[in-house]
Amino acid sequence: SMGTIGCVTKGATMVFPGEGFDAGATLKAVAGERCTGLYGVPTMFVGMLDHPDFDTFDLTSLRTGIMAGSPCPIEVMKKVVSLMHMAEVTIAYGMTETSPVSFQSSVDDPLEKRVSTVGRVHPHVEVKAIDADGATVAVGAPGELCTRGYSVMKGYWDDEEKTREAIDPDGWMHTGDLATIDAEGYCNIVGRVKDMVIRGGENVYPREVEEFLYRHPKVREVQVFGIPDPKFGEELCAWIVLKPGQTATDQEIKAFCAGQIAHYKIPRHIRFRTELPMTVTGKPQKFLMREAMVDELGLVTPKTA
């Protein structure tokens, strides 16, 4: 069985996905059917790369595919290109409400652009990044990403209020994602508006810290999020899944960060987990991690308006 959104292509033949993702079954299908394309979320690719029998599968038929659904860690992307032979893999970004893709990298984009951005805007779609007041931000500055065009939904079923919150009177869908768009039009998702952590007056984007921690040779998966703190307002916490057979300490992870990233970006709380809470499509659920840490540490969450 393959992933819920993982599917492989073989010429004009489709290998259909099963009900749940199974890394071994997917690798077997790719090798056995000589598939050329593979689709999935980053967690699925991580699962395949870390499969104990990965080296026994002949994946040389692979050439292309799409990785999307949640931010694609740069280190994972590089391994997919080098170890899974997907030299023409593309990254896509969007949301269900925008049918779904609004940005996508191209197969002939430079590798650096393909591993560090989600590509450029799709044809016939408009995009912009805005500040808290709704003004378009400067080129390269972070802002909330908005999408407008044929792909934007009519609205949420039987929920006019939620629709009005998401789509403004000018037809812009507010994604809730923080992004930068460079002078060439390449977009980089830097985090969620709600995920941004303000620690002692400093803005911290968890995505940036996650990308750094993915460089640690023992780290398989990591999620960084903010939890309430009486002194700093918010403090950073990291949940880490180590690669099979590895052990690590929080001191080891902090030492890895020391002198490499700003002191206020080093997670104060580090927890090692066997798995991270995910949606069925492989999106990490930071709110569940946050709630678990609040319970564990006996924190009082500030009242929100």
Results as ranks from 00 to 15, higher is better:
222 V>I: 02
215 R>N: 10
182 D>Y: 13
261 I>A: 02
248 A>H: 01
214 Y>I: 03
214 Y>R: 13
264 Y>P: 06
231 K>Y: 08
185 G>C: 12
182 D>M: 09
276 L>M: 03
200 G>T: 12
263 H>M: 14
190 V>F: 05
195 D>S: 14
267 P>V: 03
247 T>S: 10
230 P>N: 03
194 K>Q: 14
259 G>V: 02
172 W>R: 12
222 V>F: 01
183 A>P: 03
220 R>D: 10
258 A>C: 07
164 R>F: 03
218 K>W: 01
236 L>K: 04
182 D>E: 13
181 I>Q: 11
238 A>P: 04
232 F>P: 03
260 Q>G: 00
236 L>G: 09
254 K>R: 10
217 P>A: 09
238 A>F: 04
252 E>R: 11
208 E>P: 09
227 I>Q: 11
220 R>V: 02
267 P>K: 04
186 Y>H: 15
204 V>K: 10
214 Y>K: 08
270 I>L: 05
235 E>Y: 00
266 I>Q: 03
180 T>G: 07
186 Y>V: 15
223 Q>E: 12
181 I>K: 12
236 L>R: 02
171 G>D: 11
239 W>E: 08
176 G>Q: 14
211 E>P: 06
172 W>Q: 09
187 C>M: 13
203 N>C: 06
260 Q>P: 00
169 P>K: 14
186 Y>G: 15
266 I>M: 03
198 I>K: 15
223 Q>Y: 01
179 A>L: 06
174 H>Q: 15
261 I>P: 03
201 G>N: 07
245 G>C: 00
226 G>L: 12
260 Q>K: 07
171 G>V: 07
263 H>E: 08
182 D>T: 14
236 L>C: 12
262 A>K: 15
254 K>Y: 05
213 L>C: 14
231 K>M: 15
274 T>K: 11
205 Y>S: 13
264 Y>D: 02
264 Y>T: 04
212 F>Q: 01
247 T>I: 09
178 L>E: 15
239 W>C: 08
245 G>W: 00
241 V>I: 01
181 I>E: 13
243 K>Q: 08
217 P>K: 04
179 A>C: 12
244 P>H: 09
224 V>A: 04
251 Q>F: 02
198 I>T: 15
234 E>K: 07
175 T>L: 11
172 W>T: 15
220 R>M: 06
218 K>V: 06
255 A>H: 06
224 V>E: 04
191 G>L: 07
236 L>D: 07
232 F>R: 13
214 Y>D: 11
178 L>T: 15
222 V>R: 03
